[in-house]
């Protein structure tokens, strides 16, 4: 449909096309797992994540000749995925994108200060072997308004620097850090509240933390 008549863009010469295809294969091979991981963290479910990965690489393919290599390839792909994700989410009806204020995370009682994350003294790797905890974490991340989730996923899950995240989402470092802080506070609160339900008797008995004390 798009390629039936050449409009603005000249048809690529076969040599370039072959080169693009070969480079694309390398790009895809080296980065598809990383992009799928990123996409599952953003979307929460495998099918939506696959759609996002396909959209990302399709856009990368189309934009490959314009990519000058000034950014790292992976940062460039993250940026394409982030844009594709916000377009896809706009079409569907996702969680409303509200602002998180710092004030809402200021504890009003001792119990809220002392909300516990149900890790029971284990290392993060060990604790995450618990399916309920993994699910609680995923739910907490999924419940984040999307612009906060984007920053948290890029920074705390994908391990990018605040500067890199800023480049991807179009914010300065200060704004990235502010968003990240609110996102972490949100996940902490959700996770500790969900922990009440997720870690029924066995966990409570195990580590003896009073999960219930800040329950409301």
């Amino acid at each position: 449909m798009k390629s039936s008549t050449s409009t603005k863009r000249p048809a690529p010469v076969p040599h370039n096309e072959a080169r693009t295809a070969a480079s694309f294969d390398a790009l895809y091979r080296d980065h598809v797992d990383q992009m799928y991981r990123f996409a599952t963290r953003l979307c929460g479910e495998p099918e939506a994540a696959k759609d996002l990965v396909q959209e990302t690489f399709l856009n990368a393919y189309r934009g490959y000749q314009a990519f000058r290599g000034e950014a790292q390839v992976s940062t460039w792909l993250y940026a394409i995925a982030a844009r594709a994700c916000s377009r896809m989410r706009r079409k569907r009806k996702g969680a409303p994108d509200r602002e998180l204020s710092l004030e809402e995370f200021i504890p009003t009682s001792e119990g809220e200060f002392r909300l516990q994350i149900p890790v029971g003294g284990l290392s993060p790797e060990e604790a995450l072997q618990n399916k309920e905890l993994r699910q609680a974490l995923d739910r907490a991340i999924a419940a984040l308004p999307k612009k906060y989730r984007m920053v948290l996923v890029l920074r705390d899950m994908e391990g990018l620097s605040a500067k890199e995240v800023g480049g991807i989402v179009g914010l300065n470092e200060r704004a990235v850090k502010s968003r990240l802080h609110r996102a972490r506070l949100f996940v902490r609160r959700e996770l500790s509240a969900q922990g009440l339900a997720a870690s029924e008797p066995s966990h409570n008995a195990h580590n003896g933390h009073p999960f219930t004390q800040g329950g409301r």
């Binding site: 995450l128 995923d138 705390d156 972490r184 506070l185 996940v187 902490r188």
Partner: peptide, 17 residues
């Protein structure tokens, strides 16, 4: 608890294709 939250995010295993 905030440190633990960040550590859990960092170590969340990823799904693979």
């Amino acid at each position: 608890s905030l440190r633990q939250t960040v550590a859990l995010c960092r170590h969340r295993p990823a799904l693979a294709l």
